[in-house]
Amino acid sequence: MSIVANFDLYAPRLVNKEEYFVHGHRACQGCAEALAIRLMCKALGKDAVIINATGCMEVVSSLYPTTAWKLPWLHVAFPNSAAAGSGVSAALKVLRRKGKISDRPVKAVSIGGDGGTFDIGLQALSGAMERGHDLLYVCFDNEAYMNTGIQRSGATPFGASTTTHPAGPASTGKSAWKKNLTEIMIAHNVPYVATACPSYPIDFIRKVEKAKKVKGPAFIHVLAVCPTGWRCASEKAISMGRLASETGVFPIYEVVDGKYSLTIKHDKLRPVADYLKLQGRFRHLSPDMVKQVQERVVQEYNKLLDKVDNLHAWSELKG
């Protein structure tokens, strides 16, 4: 029996059966971020420490005296999960060296939302990546400050209506384009950088497994569909993530040692309107603006394809 032809039958067997992010947390219906975290934890296995920035996931999972975490978990503040993660990583290293903890590798994994990563936490993230700690950073990007009530962030896409940059007679929603954080991470010479989405669970799990094996910094940018903030039906959370990929709005790729490759490929991109029209945050967009988005998405996608086709792994380049 072919594994490829019967993938759906085999896929569940490829996933860790243990649950480390358990039911009972208070995430909204259809929260793709909660799903992504559950999958990430499965991929990490038990030997990991999670350092969580303030945000939705910290709030919904850690109401004292309860916790949804069956992995060791630390929350410090909003802008510093990468810095606190640096400390955890350094402590694990030195305590292991001194024989004060058991002698096996344990991965420090910092996580944060787009606000805690693109905006207020960018400095700490940049510092941690530059220093080269053995630290995996996973950004769960739902494209606005959802925890505080859908305010605009550096990750909010062009045209989206948020509570701090709302659409109105004198406004068309966010007037700037989304920051390309993945490229910023690649510019730090991080050896493993990837984008992912829980709508492609096996792809995401494999990426977390790869990132965990890196002895040094690694970064994964996860698009986490937020039905509450995107004003879309909660049962669309998975298909919406797929649409983001199929339209080219959020290409899913990885960059290993500088070598780009698309891990989810589409023969032909669907029109962005298919993605935009299902979300209330884009309801006000005029045909002209949709066209503007379409052109930008294709241009960005082509820029990416150009890198996929033409850039070499750093190790292949002469020093």
């Binding site: 810095a83 993660g85 955890v88 350094a90 060296r97 001194k98 700490a124």
Partner: peptide
Amino acid sequence: LDAEFICVESEHSALSACIGASAAGARA
């Protein structure tokens, strides 16, 4: 001195790193 010395990029991160280290069981 057998210690990890982290040259952080800000004081905010200095104390944050100490929190992470201390929470992981290190003297910070």
